[in-house]
Nucleic acid binder design. Sequence first.
DNA 1: GAATTTATCAATCCAAAGATGTAGGACAAA
DNA 2: TTTGTCCTACATCTTTGGATTGATAAATTC
Lengths: 232, 232
Amino acid sequence: MREFKRRSRVLLIDDNADHLRGVKELITLESSYDVVGTTTSANIGINLAKKYRPDIILMDINMPEKDGLQAIQEIEKLDMDIRVIALSGYDDADLIFRAMKIGAKGYVLKTMASAQLIYAMDEVAAGKIYLPTALTSRFFEYFQNSFKEEAKSSSEENLLTYLTAREEEVLDLLTQGNNYKSIAGKLFISETTVKTHVNNIFQKLQVNDRTQAVLYALNNGFANRRLSKIAV
Amino acid sequence: MREFKRRSRVLLIDDNADHLRGVKELITLESSYDVVGTTTSANIGINLAKKYRPDIILMDINMPEKDGLQAIQEIEKLDMDIRVIALSGYDDADLIFRAMKIGAKGYVLKTMASAQLIYAMDEVAAGKIYLPTALTSRFFEYFQNSFKEEAKSSSEENLLTYLTAREEEVLDLLTQGNNYKSIAGKLFISETTVKTHVNNIFQKLQVNDRTQAVLYALNNGFANRRLSKIAV
DNA sequence: GAATTTATCAATCCAAAGATGTAGGACAAA
DNA sequence: TTTGTCCTACATCTTTGGATTGATAAATTC
């Protein structure tokens, strides 16, 4: 049996009309994709996306009017299996990171060879995620850096380590928003005992109240150390 | 002037003695790297790392005795500019993600061609981060998935949107551990006014006390502290 | 211009949180 | 055995937090 592969449909969004034309021509001539629409406006682009349901969107993310990243986010929220490839003039690590974070399936520099753009589209059309090697490297540097600080703060002398097992239990319940009575009930001890523990926790963490204790815990790798911080 | 490039020094850690021998031979014969040590024990490997200060470590992360990931973490903590490449039998997304998160400079499958291992070493020796394309794709799928949930919870009807500008200011100060008096001082308003705002915040966020309000804010993408969750 | 929302402040009252001191029993280490 | 730590508990007291009601002025919206 022969499988007919439907030609993939592409929508182009780029506020630079010249570049837009260039990319359209490139795709039309040198690839097997159908350009179903082009626009210089992110907002119009989002509407076109809803209307034409393209397989792929090439989205310029350096637009003044509306942030391309935001546009990607809105398209992702549609949850329509539209794959967005970010087009950018900058190989800025932060930009790459944010684009990938919000769901871009690829990130290609405008300065890259046209063949690379087509290749990225092929990969993304095939369901993969594509980042040029150089950008991947940048991404990972950024990615790893964002964890370094955390690694330090949670490995360096952490006041949390001074807590006893029971105190950790109490703190855990505190970080879930429980008050004294609630904690006492859950641990089957008296409320006054809970107060004693909480007071000891305050002393050890050098804080003044439960809110500060909770914040300290969350910012220093408490909660099973399952939560990680990434600045966005 | 001629620049002499020092031969890079490599340490091999792999609990499988056979594979260890194989890799050593491969590197010795087909590359310009010096193998300065080999061991089947992660713990010994860490000590060898301290002693010989290799440029690169090839670390098997599928070891029963001690977790290779943990070993990588300990080596990273040494902060000695030793670049670790994870060797693994599995292209499991979670494994890849965790390895890269803790600072591995590369991740190579044992089943991959030897040329790819050498290439990875070259890249890493040059200061880059290397992941085979196929694994990069897997990594990103995992990466993006871990943000999907969050995107939903912060885009879906978020009670935070009902707050007025002033209430947001107050909540922001709450999430920094301030009490009424402190907030009043910082906003130059009376304490009772702060109480009014805070009460309104409680109503809108449907919580009972400041701790719960702070937790709600942090878990729902409140302003400044855009903390993201990633399961580790 | 009227109606609504927002920000401000006050008084009052009760509940909850927090500080401090004391103390007994369990348990482990010295 | 003694020492120390931890968990438990109570009493007392002060402070802070939070609920409720009501009120005024300014800004916004209709």
